[in-house]
Design a protein around this nucleic acid. Structure first.
Lengths: 192, 192
DNA sequence: GTCTATATCAAGATAGAC
DNA sequence: GTCTATCTTGATATAGAC
């Protein structure tokens, strides 16, 4: 169970217990819908069809579309938090962040991120927990001797993620590795 | 007149001639709508009201909502191109890019960017000209001795822009200046 | 070129049966 | 908890007058 500014993230508990709840399977379906049809076609109808549940069934677990999107965001953030914790960085800080964020997102997390990005147009508050996540990351950097460089790396990591999700970063494998190596290098320099 | 992969960008011609066409004023109105009401409320109705034109009037100049969004994107890209050209960088390359991109976007350009980001969920092809823009920017970096660093700066610049537009980068004035200075410094190092 | 009126439709949400 | 059926709204786009 991850805590994020008072918001309890239970996103993974279902999967962790090997007992994927219906709630979880609906979130999975939602990601698959975005993956196959694009964020704009993330409708309650489409999710219901994909999850092999009726519309009413979906709305029982997520009383509104916004609730569904919040559920998706929770998961993405919990996964990010998880990845950072499990990064095994000897430095922590941006370096852990960099280790976690230079591994590509799972397709479903990327899809969810796109959906949330799109939905934030309708309700900017939807991004609040993401704001908290990033604010905490930056807070952890303050006071460092290399704050500016760490910040640059952080912004670059997020930039890479968003651009990738949007298909805006045309790099071949070699170039991608080079970018990753550079980010990790800079992160390490800024962390020691 | 800016060329971008065969796409003729006439976004600024109206303003340049000091004869703002109705087309231009509709685009202005669209940005204002996003600014005041959010990207989700960018509807033909709202734009018509803001531009003091009827719905039919808007649809005469932009036969579909997609056409309107394309018009907005053209403008943002033309402005970016313009800013880079006018940056006065002695190095060119990422440094010019950095000089241009570390100056904050105008509110209306930022609004347009948000609208396009949101709309890309409906039609990913909408981002095609942005893809071309970024691809060209990266192409210009290839062959440089400092390709990796230049790329990192580019990604960081885009990251900063997108995060700022989404309200995801909580920095005070001092920190923002520090980040800007670092990006410019790295850009310069990667450019000489 | 600009307007009004209207057709059409997709989608979120509610109510209540089972 | 899950289903079907229905209500309601908001938005794009068309048609045709002026």
């Amino acid at each position: 169970m991850y805590r994020l500014d008072g918001l309890v993230l239970e996103a993974y508990t279902g999967a962790m217990q090997g007992r994927p709840s219906k709630r979880e399977s609906i979130l999975d379906a939602a990601s698959r819908v975005v993956e196959s049809q694009g964020a704009a076609h993330l409708t309650i109808d489409a999710v219901a069809a994909e999850a092999a549940v009726s519309k009413g069934g979906v709305l029982y677990h997520f009383p509104s579309k916004q609730a569904l999107l919040e559920g998706m965001l929770e998961r993405v953030l919990a996964a990010a938090e998880q990845d950072i914790q499990a990064s095994g960085s000897p430095y922590g800080g941006v370096h852990a962040h960099a280790l976690a964020f230079t591994k590509p997102l799972s397709r479903s997390d990327e899809s969810a991120a796109l959906a949330i990005l799109a939905a934030s147009a309708e309700d900017p508050q939807l991004l609040d927990s993401a704001r908290t996540f990033i604010r905490d990351s930056i807070d952890a950097l303050r006071g460092s001797d290399h704050f500016a460089d760490a910040l640059m790396v952080l912004v670059a990591l997020e930039g890479q993620r968003i651009m990738d999700a949007l298909g805006l970063l045309p790099l071949n494998t070699k170039e991608r590795k080079l970018l990753t190596a550079t980010l990790l290098q800079r992160a390490e320099e800024a962390s020691r």
